[in-house]
């Protein structure tokens, strides 16, 4: 039972990080109709920047954290302005290719600057276990979970209650109608990239805190993909819930299949099997929008 609860809680925590990254995917997709394949690299570079700031300048973690957010903002604006804006009107597939290219560039930069070796993240959150009664959980997990939760609530409120949040939803609902009302689409696209980069950066920092930092951290981009598809590429709530589902699935199947088969590393594979099963039944994902076809 403890084993199960441990895996479950692990899964929920990792899943909440997945949710954040999935949110990044969904945001860009909803606003610009482009699937950003550089999402994993964005979170990886966020983690490296944070680590670098803390280690080289000796700044406290919080300063490193906020510096990273500023960096992610600038990076997103640069990508949007230098690459994507020039591709406005190009076929979606070309833009998707461009994001793959951006991913490769970011990965190479990280390899050039920091190398491929594993770099431990300095202890930011205490790792001692916290006794929750039934099960003991490392505090870093709890911090990560609540940080994700906070960010999700902030962005949820942003979309529901602010003028720009409403504008972003409007653009994703009908780009043409938004344009006809004087909405500057380019600025909305840039905003989507910025928010997406910020949540990725936070996700990257948390993931690195838990599992250490190598360029392989960018694999999170791929591991989150089942969550994105499961949630339906265009649903923010779907991405959030699916992130947690995938995290739990991954941990439970990883934990139990290892005992069963003696093979480790089956965890990340399991979600893809479930993904295929679900898409079989519901091609638009669990929460995806079936177009409202009513005239």
């Amino acid at each position: 039972m403890d084993y199960f609860l441990g895996l479950l809680i692990n899964g929920i925590v990792v899943g909440s990080i997945y949710s954040m990254i999935a949110l990044g995917f969904v945001l860009i997709y909803k606003a610009t109709e482009v699937v950003n394949f550089a999402q994993g690299e964005l979170l990886m570079i966020g983690a490296y920047i944070c680590l670098e700031v803390i280690v080289t300048t000796g700044m406290p973690f919080l300063a490193g954290f906020f510096t990273t957010l500023v960096f992610m903002t600038l990076l997103a604006l640069a990508i949007e302005k230098l690459v994507l804006r020039r591709m406005m009107g190009a076929p979606v597939m070309s833009v998707v290719m461009a994001t793959i290219g951006i991913g490769i560039v970011l990965r190479s930069v990280v390899l050039l600057v920091w190398g491929a070796t594993n770099r431990p993240f300095p202890t930011v959150f205490p790792r001692e276990g916290l006794d929750l009664g039934v099960v003991t959980v490392s505090q870093v997990y709890l911090y990560a979970f609540f940080l994700c939760l906070t960010f999700m609530v902030i962005f949820g409120a942003f979309f529901q209650y602010t003028r720009w949040g409403l504008t972003m939803r409007a653009v994703s609902s009908s780009r043409k109608a938004a344009e006809s009302l004087g909405v500057p689409l380019v600025r909305v696209f840039a905003l989507a990239w910025v928010i997406s980069a910020i949540v990725s950066g936070v996700g990257g920092i948390l993931a690195a805190n838990i599992s250490g930092l190598t360029p392989d951290l960018s694999a999170y981009g791929v591991r989150v993909f089942p969550a994105v598809i499961l949630g339906g590429l265009d649903s923010i709530i779907g991405a959030t819930i699916s992130g947690v589902i995938i995290g739990v699935l991954e941990n439970l199947s990883g934990g139990y299949l290892r005992n069963l088969t003696g093979l480790s590393g089956l965890g990340p594979v399991a979600p893809f099997f479930v993904l295929i099963l679900i898409l079989w039944v519901r091609p638009t994902g669990l929460f995806g929008r079936k177009e409202i076809d009513k005239l």
């Binding site: 939803r169 409007a170 609902s173 009908s174 938004a178 006809s180 929008r289």
Partner: peptide, 8 residues
């Protein structure tokens, strides 16, 4: 063609 925002 009635371009409303269907999801809003």
């Amino acid at each position: 063609g009635r371009y409303v925002f269907p999801d809003l």
